[in-house]
Design a protein around this nucleic acid. Structure first.
Length: 602
DNA sequence: CCCCCCCC
């Protein structure tokens, strides 16, 4: 078996030229710094003619080396790379190649030897030769850069860096080398946050930056926070230089970078005003909503869905910190048939506009679990986009507007048992529907303020087994005796019980419900015994009773569950409890609700 | 230099 390496490609690349997907051989690898998360590997690669050891492996490819998939003598196709000129202390410049993506063509064990007789490539070799120029193509090479007017002061910029007409890839940044300019897109920007602890107090904001080679978080404290907060805008591209780098604490960052940066008083930021379309935008890795249920709590993920329902904004005080929080729960659906609640906080909760069922793309939301059901919660670093101009969003819009809106969905955030939210919160029929209450195995309970709009008097009362624990309907033997099939006994006596079918309405909808004896007695305002007697001896009083209760308001507790009768599955809602309204309590709830909707203290 | 990401 013979392998064809891209002879001469190294020379072109190391002189700053372009070469599309060169085939090279790995001859060695060396860990150059750190351990664990700080690991970085340098590779010795050969194109058969030359070899050089200034190739670095992007961190996301480390696994290939660690698992041995990539080893000495492996033949690889370098699918994506960038080169970067690094200033070496006292040694001029050195070009390094950062391998961003590769395909293994043959494992090292299979190749087993050095191909060709590569000579060590050196800077001298490079400078002694004319710069080979392949026709520019694709976007592999460092983009030629014309520096915009530096902001705020040109004197702050290292002119040698700027004049080098190149920028450094994020993947090449390290604490050991501070002369660089990066050209980055801002993926997200946190709100300004203040802190106060034993070491002092201050304020900060952080931003997540990306370029072709990777991503990194930058934080601006105190003066720099004030200086740059307004200038830095999400989605814009900036040239940034003179930050300090330190090891990132993986506990607090999910970015794929071993380092993070802090702005310093010397930091210079200049907006890139040229065409930035070649710069990567925000990269999403969307998970279908129905797959979220299988993921562990605290997983960070990207999701896109159509807003089917949004709660009003609520204000609440965090018990632990005493902080005033604003939150809004948005239920999103996608064509996977899943629905999930996404919780927005702060300004995003406040300004969210539910009109038109917007498509929401969210990058970096976190799964939270409460009372056994999962939902998504936004973090400060979460990127939210409403109706973004992207294929996934257009596809979802089309799906939703052409029937998707009416499809049944499984809401993975549906409450599992217990009263809704474990609280005595009053919800509406619309919310019950949106939360998919009743779709689970166990049935769901919720409370609401509802109006009894109709009660069905037919078959509302029946003669039940007189045994205390048995309420079975008796069969009239027509001989003065009544038979209970359950107790397998005949009785001369019976007790009346109510089984009431009714309609309940609220401002958002209505629902056919069934009420059993105790709650039906409350709704009708008479005992089952009285109602039974009226049924037997006072037909007009009996029907008047059912008329009289129309439009009475109650606080209901319902149990909702899907049930199937003769091949037809429908939501069955049972009255667990009905109580007359305590208007003092009811008004307190309304005031609270008005306050949360308007922010007005009433 | 932060490291909180909330609540039911």
């Amino acid at each position: 078996m013979s392998y064809q390496l891209s002879e001469g490609s190294l020379e072109i690349i190391m002189n700053g030229g372009q070469y599309d997907k060169p085939i090279m051989q790995v001859l060695g690898s060396k860990k150059i710094q750190g351990s664990g998360a700080n690991e970085r590997f340098r590779l010795l690669v050969s194109d058969g003619k030359h070899s050089h050891s200034f190739a670095m492996l992007a961190t996301q490819l480390h696994d290939k080396l660690i698992t041995g998939e990539l080893s000495d003598y492996s033949v690889v196709q370098i699918d994506r790379f960038i080169t970067s000129l690094l200033k070496m202390t006292g040694k001029g410049e050195k070009r390094v190649m950062i391998i961003l993506d590769l395909t293994i063509i043959a494992p090292g064990s299979q190749v087993g030897k050095t191909l060709g007789t590569p000579k060590t490539w050196s800077e001298e070799t490079a400078s002694s030769k004319p710069q080979p120029q392949q026709a520019p193509k694709q976007n592999h090479a460092p983009a030629p850069m014309s520096m915009p007017k530096p902001v705020p002061a040109p004197a702050n910029l290292d002119s040698s860096i700027l004049n080098s007409k190149m920028t450094h890839p994020i993947a090449s940044l390290s604490p050991y080398q501070n002369k660089w300019v990066i050209k980055v897109r801002v993926m997200s920007k946190s709100p300004i946050r203040t802190w106060s602890n034993a070491k002092g107090e201050g304020k900060l904001f952080s931003m997540d930056l990306c370029d072709e080679s990777g991503e990194i978080r930058a934080t601006a404290f105190k003066n720099e926070c004030d200086k740059f907060y307004d200038m830095i805008q999400v989605d814009n591209v900036y040239y940034i230089s003179r930050c300090s780098l330190k090891t990132a604490n993986k506990r607090f960052s999910t970015l794929k970078n071993d380092y993070e940066m802090s702005f310093t008083p010397e930091t210079v930021v200049a907006e890139c005003t040229e065409d930035t379309s070649s710069m990567p935008g925000i990269q999403y890795d969307f998970i279908p909503i129905n797959k979220i249920a299988d993921k562990d709590p605290d997983t960070i993920l990207d999701v896109i869905g159509v807003c089917k329902f949004a709660s009003d904004m609520q204000e609440l005080t965090a018990k632990s910190t005493g902080r005033l929080l604003k939150k809004r729960e948005v239920t999103i659906v996608d064509s996977s048939g899943g629905a999930v609640v996404l919780t927005l906080w702060g300004n995003e909760a406040e300004s969210f506009d539910t009109n038109g069922n917007p498509v929401i793309a969210a990058k970096g939301t976190r799964i939270s679990e409460f009372n056994g059901s999962k939902s998504l919660s936004c973090l400060n670093s979460t990127v939210l986009r409403f109706n973004p101009d992207m294929p996934e969003a257009h596809a979802l819009r089309g799906w939703y507007d052409n029937g998707g809106a009416d499809l049944d969905v499984v809401n993975i955030s549906a409450k599992v048992g217990g009263y809704s939210g474990g609280s005595n919160e009053w919800i509406t029929f619309a919310e019950a529907e949106s939360r998919q209450l009743g779709s689970g195995e166990k049935g769901d309970y919720y409370s609401m303020l509802g109006v009894l709009t109709f009660t069905f008097s037919d078959n509302a009362v029946y003669k039940a087994c007189p045994q205390e624990a048995c309420n079975k309907k008796l069969v009239d033997q027509e001989n003065g005796l009544f038979r209970c099939e359950k107790c397998n006994r005949e009785f001369p006596n019976y007790k009346y019980r109510i089984l009431l079918a009714a309609n309940v309405s609220d401002p958002t909808g209505d629902q056919r419900v069934t009420a059993f004896n105790e709650s039906a007695e409350v709704m009708l305002g008479r005992s089952a015994d009285e109602i039974g007697r009226m049924f037997e001896y006072d037909k007009s009083g009996y029907s008047q009773l059912f008329d009289d209760v129309k439009f009475k308001t109650f606080v209901f507790k319902f149990r909702a569950k899907m049930e199937t009768y003769s091949d037809e599955t429908r939501l069955k809602t049972t009255v667990i409890n009905a109580q007359p309204v305590d208007y003092k309590e009811g008004n307190a709830r309304l005031l609270k609700s008005i306050k949360s909707m308007t922010g007005v203290d009433v």
